[in-house]
Amino acid sequence: MVSIVGILYLQGCCVPHEKILKKLGVETRRIIYANDLDGCSALILPGGESTTMLKHITPKLEDAILTFAKANPVWGICAGSILMAKHVKNPSQKSLGLMDVTILRNGYGAQNESFIRKIPMKLKENDTFEGIFIRAPQIESIGDDVKVLAFDDEVPVFIEQDHLMATTFHPELAKDDAIHRYFLSKIES
């Protein structure tokens, strides 16, 4: 069966994900309503503004995402990682609570404090990855079930919990599809 990767398409940076996945030969689908998830094998929660996305996530769509995430890979990027965290601070807000994580919104500051740094990580082919942090959230603490795949200055920036993963930086803006390929590998396993 051909895998379809859903991208939550309510607001944010979606098109670059579509382009990368297309290049990798994977079909994508824009997820706006709960039934859009039918037949998808994985879901991306993109970067953008988490407060705006929360306004658009209806109770029905929320239920569908929570059910989907029990058995399928979900990847949250920046704002998407805020949606995935169990606890959100600065200020505190609602979330989907999929991963056992406490996260600070705008944890590094405003746009002046946005930065790009080489992130060391232990995925197969790449030793480092271009970490593009834009008004990024900061992971404050993680539960025992959460594994860190990359740190920046001792702060976790790429984490996974079974089939769920989150990055506080933007792999879709880098010229490297290693993290997308890693995410796709979760579909098969």
Binding site: Q11, G12, C13, C14, G47, E49, S114, I116, L173
Partner: peptide, 18 residues
């Protein structure tokens, strides 16, 4: 160029919004 990438990146994050 790095800063430019971050700045265009922020604009990308605002897509689909008001």
């Amino acid at each position: 160029e790095e800063r430019r990438k971050l700045n265009i990146g922020l604009a990308e994050m605002l897509c689909g919004g008001v």
